[in-house]
């Protein structure tokens, strides 16, 4: 039951949304200049720009509750991996399971399957937040849902092309799905931040998201002729601050220049 004092989405939840958007935006930008076709390079850059734009709006919203010195950049560049609350799935590199100290090529199948699984979730989340009593979060949701619907459509198209393409593309898509499905378990177990967001009545209802997500997944995999892998095994904890080994490398790179010049304005 929401009261007037609790119409603001809790800081921790806004940071979860912001960190997730930033980390995935950062990952997708890695394809810039390296895409399989020029047209797709441009499309993925759009995806990344949308996500970074969402992150900026969310960090600015979070900064209102994060103290007088807080800004979008202080939150993005001056928090370490232990403070980040993104889903583990979005911090993974663009390839199958491998330690960060090993080196592997980027795999477009991993990128698109991940974008699909994630965007599928976020269209549901943004739809719930559009009518939120937190007016600023509602405004962000209204913009983000349009972008996310496009991301979902783009990723769905690629999952289908790869699954129902060549033997090679089918095998890669299936391998990516097998690798990433277990990370979706994290979507459904409420973090402390999500629990308090739901208690505050901002609109989020995690329980109601899973069935439609599953429905879309089944529809897409059907067209893609891919097998839905069981989402079992280890449950990742990124949104609770327990990340994979990959996040500290991602943030180490991303934050390095800003941190080398602590007093600088850019």
């Amino acid at each position: 039951m929401s009261t007037a004092a609790h119409t603001l989405a809790p800081l921790a939840y806004v940071l979860q949304l912001a960190d997730t958007a930033l980390v995935l935006g950062q990952r997708n930008a890695e394809w810039c200049g390296h895409g399989p076709a020029l047209e797709e390079d441009i499309a993925l850059a759009n995806n990344s720009l949308d996500l970074i734009g969402q992150a900026r709006m969310l960090y600015s919203l979070a900064a209102l509750q994060a103290g007088p010195q807080a800004s979008e950049d202080s939150l993005a560049y001056w928090r370490g991996p232990e403070a980040f609350r993104n889903y583990t799935m979005v911090e993974l590199p663009h390839h199958g399971p491998m330690a960060p100290s090993a080196r592997q090529d980027r795999d477009f199948a991993t990128t698109m399957v991940r974008n699909f699984l994630f965007s599928n979730l976020m269209v549901g989340v943004w739809a719930q937040l559009e009518p939120s009593p937190d007016a600023q979060l509602a405004a962000i949701a209204a913009k983000a849902i349009k972008e996310t619907r496009y991301h979902l459509r783009h990723a769905h198209d690629w999952v289908v092309r790869m699954g129902d393409g060549t033997d090679t593309s089918h095998a890669r898509a299936q391998a990516a799905l097998d690798h990433l499905m277990p990370y979706t378990q994290e979507f459904w177990r409420p973090s402390a931040a999500e629990q308090s967001a739901m208690d505050f009545g901002i609109g989020l209802d995690l329980g109601a998201l899973q069935a439609p997500w599953q429905q879309q997944l089944t529809a897409t995999l059907d067209l893609a002729q891919l097998q839905a892998s069981p989402a079992t095994g280890f449950v990742s904890g990124g949104k609770n601050g327990i990340h994979s080994e990959h996040l500290s490398y991602l943030l180490g790179d991303m934050q390095s220049l800003a941190r080398a010049h602590p007093q600088a304005v850019w």
Binding site: A43, N46, H154, D157
Partner: peptide, 8 residues
């Protein structure tokens, strides 16, 4: 082509 036209 339609999607890419939108992006490009």
């Amino acid at each position: 082509a339609l999607r890419l036209a939108r992006d490009v």
